[in-house]
Computed example of a mutant assay.
Amino acid sequence: MPNQPRPPQHAQDHARHRGRRALAGAGVLLALSTALVAGGTAHAAPAAAAVDRPSGQAVAETGAPAASPARHKSRVTAAVLDLDGTGREPTVYGDDVTYDTASIIKVDILATLLLQAQDAGRRLTAQERAHAEPMIRHSDNAAANALWREIGRAPGLEAANKRLGLTETKGGSGTRWGLTRTTASDQIRLLRAVFGTAGKPDTGATALDAESRTYVRTLMAGVANEQAWGVSAASASGWALKNGWLQRSTSGLWDVNSVGRIVVDGHRYLVAVLSDGSISMKDGVALVERTARAALTSASGH
């Protein structure tokens, strides 16, 4: 992730608690609680971490050695929407509060770029595509920097998000796109704008045209192998995703997030899992994957 200082405390810690949505049974509560403390992961997460920060930088945002990890309880929230069902609102597991986006914001950056190009009556230029593709597939930060500037940074992002249906996402200040704040339910709204059907009466599903939606879907379905973790752990067949990870210099703790579309028993699900406070990226990936599995087990009734 880019070198980014922590935003003001009030902007981070203002919890927009909407209460807990109905959790489908005590088993899901137990599974989510277990995910917060259990360790281990099936993926080589540290190798992926090296891809998502500037070459030669330390893992903390400041470029300086990270502080020793503080004692802190991890947080995690998941949101799931059955794209083939009749519901329009996701089921949220945990408190739907804000988290740092880290690199999942790159999907929103691309959606904003595409919406702006549509407004101008044009397709993306060759140069824009040369930034967009590594930004999604390899989580390239230099490409994200270029497109963040092009879309008009936070004001451009937030203007597009109003049309895409997002209501709880606040762009990072200045160049700090990775410190954009969002909620799991807002990430489902973004995913619905990308993976939804324009014929459905969804707020954001008609903003991006079919060509734009197909472009984002294709890139998310083709991320680099070392980044194919996260919500894909709950998929029985196909997936398209974007992950984000960031070690905070102030605490040494990790933000680890994963958003995307997965297929389980022939049903397409939109899934967003956001977390922070993990001692290591490995622990954060394990937390996200176990939470995704638990949420999908509940949502699919298996």
Rank of each mutant, 00 (worst) to 15 (best):
Q4E: 10
R6P: 03
P8I: 11
A11H: 09
A11F: 06
D13S: 11
R18M: 06
R20P: 00
A24P: 00
A24G: 07
L29I: 02
L30D: 10
G40F: 11
P46H: 11
A47Q: 11
A48W: 07
A49Q: 14
A50I: 05
D52W: 06
P54W: 01
S55Q: 13
A58D: 09
V59N: 03
G63I: 01
A64H: 11
P65N: 08
P65K: 06
A66S: 14
A70C: 06
S74E: 12
S74C: 03
V76M: 09
A79G: 07
D82L: 08
D84C: 09
T86G: 09
R88V: 07
E89D: 15
E89M: 12
D95K: 10
D96Y: 04
T98D: 06
T101S: 15
T101N: 07
I104E: 03
I104T: 12
I105H: 01
K106G: 00
K106R: 06
I109A: 05
L110H: 03
L114G: 03
Q118T: 09
D119Y: 05
R122K: 14
R129K: 13
A130R: 14
H131R: 10
A132D: 00
P134C: 10
D140Q: 12
D140E: 13
N141L: 02
A142D: 15
A142F: 05
L147T: 06
E150T: 15
E150Y: 02
G156E: 04
A159G: 05
R163Y: 02
G165E: 03
E168G: 05
G172T: 09
G174Q: 09
G174H: 09
T180G: 05
A184C: 07
S185V: 02
D186Q: 07
Q187T: 03
I188N: 00
L190S: 03
T197S: 15
T203A: 15
G204E: 02
A205I: 03
T206I: 04
T206V: 09
A207T: 12
D209W: 08
T214L: 13
V216P: 00
M220W: 01
A221Q: 14
A224S: 13
E226V: 12
A228F: 07
S232V: 14
S232K: 14
S235V: 01
A236M: 05
W245F: 13
R248M: 07
R248E: 13
R248A: 13
S251V: 06
L253Y: 04
V256D: 10
V259Q: 02
R261N: 11
R261V: 07
Y269M: 06
A272R: 02
A272S: 15
V273D: 01
L274W: 02
S278G: 08
S280E: 13
D283Y: 04
D283V: 07
D283K: 14
G284V: 03
A286V: 04
L287I: 10
V288I: 12
R290Y: 09
A294L: 05
T297R: 14
